[in-house]
Computed example of a mutant assay.
Amino acid sequence: MASPIFTTERLIVRPLLQADLPWFVELEGDPEVMRYTDRPAQTPEQSTFALLELAGRRELDGQLCLWAVVNREGEGLGTAAVYRNDDQQWEMGYKFHRYCWGQGLASELAEALVGYLQQPLKGETLHAFAFSDNVASCRILEKCGFALVREWFNPDYQLLDRHYQLTFSE
């Protein structure tokens, strides 16, 4: 197993590995999970290509860091992402398999991710986006100290989109 980026009480966040392919393809291909993202459900080919391109990445280098989120037994539960978006803003995101929803895992991950990012992003602003109908993620971001800075109608998805941000002190 790859060495962890960080851990929480129940979670290990580590680089994606090629061995993660089965659960990663399932996660990325689940339309219910992906409806809360800016992408449709991915085909197995798309997911395989993405995993092979991103496997093993540890450091924040301005590129997409997509990390595996696994439980203490090593079972793949979801992913955490940190990257510079199209506007060159630091952005974070996460997603979990549906069977993980409602267990507090996303809150645990988001709090730890914000804590992990405080030092490398010192003085920077971290951004996150959530659809307004994803009430759980909106609550999690607010609980982690993110402020809602903009809400608008997203015509691509026919719903309200929310932009949150959190500035790390110097």
Rank of each mutant, 00 (worst) to 15 (best):
M1R: 07
M1P: 11
M1T: 08
A2D: 11
S3T: 09
T7I: 08
T7W: 05
R10L: 11
R10A: 09
I12L: 08
I12K: 07
R14D: 01
R14A: 05
P15Q: 11
L17V: 06
L21G: 05
L21T: 05
F24I: 04
V25T: 15
V25I: 15
E28A: 07
E28C: 10
E28D: 10
P31I: 07
P31M: 07
R35Q: 14
Y36W: 15
Y36G: 08
Y36F: 15
Q42G: 01
Q42R: 14
S47E: 08
T48H: 04
F49C: 06
F49L: 11
A50Y: 15
A50M: 15
L51G: 02
L52P: 00
E53K: 13
E53M: 10
A55S: 15
G56P: 15
E59Q: 13
D61Q: 12
G62D: 14
Q63P: 00
C65E: 09
L66E: 04
W67D: 01
A68N: 11
V69K: 00
E73M: 09
E73R: 14
G76A: 13
G78A: 03
G78M: 04
T79Q: 04
Y83L: 09
N85P: 05
D87S: 09
D87A: 10
G93N: 02
G93Y: 03
Y94I: 01
Y94W: 09
H97R: 03
H97F: 04
C100R: 00
G104N: 10
L105F: 09
A106H: 08
S107M: 05
S107C: 00
E108H: 12
E111N: 00
Y116N: 00
L117A: 02
Q118N: 05
P120I: 04
P120E: 07
P120H: 04
K122D: 01
T125C: 12
T125P: 08
L126T: 02
L126R: 01
H127C: 13
F129K: 05
A130D: 12
A130L: 14
S132H: 11
N134S: 14
N134A: 13
V135S: 08
S137Y: 10
C138Y: 13
I140F: 04
I140D: 02
K143Q: 07
C144L: 12
G145S: 08
F146A: 03
R150P: 10
R150W: 14
E151Y: 08
W152C: 06
F153G: 07
N154R: 11
P155Y: 10
D156H: 15
D156L: 15
L159H: 08
L159Q: 13
L159M: 09
L160Q: 12
D161Q: 10
D161K: 05
R162M: 14
T167D: 00
T167H: 02
F168I: 00
E170D: 06
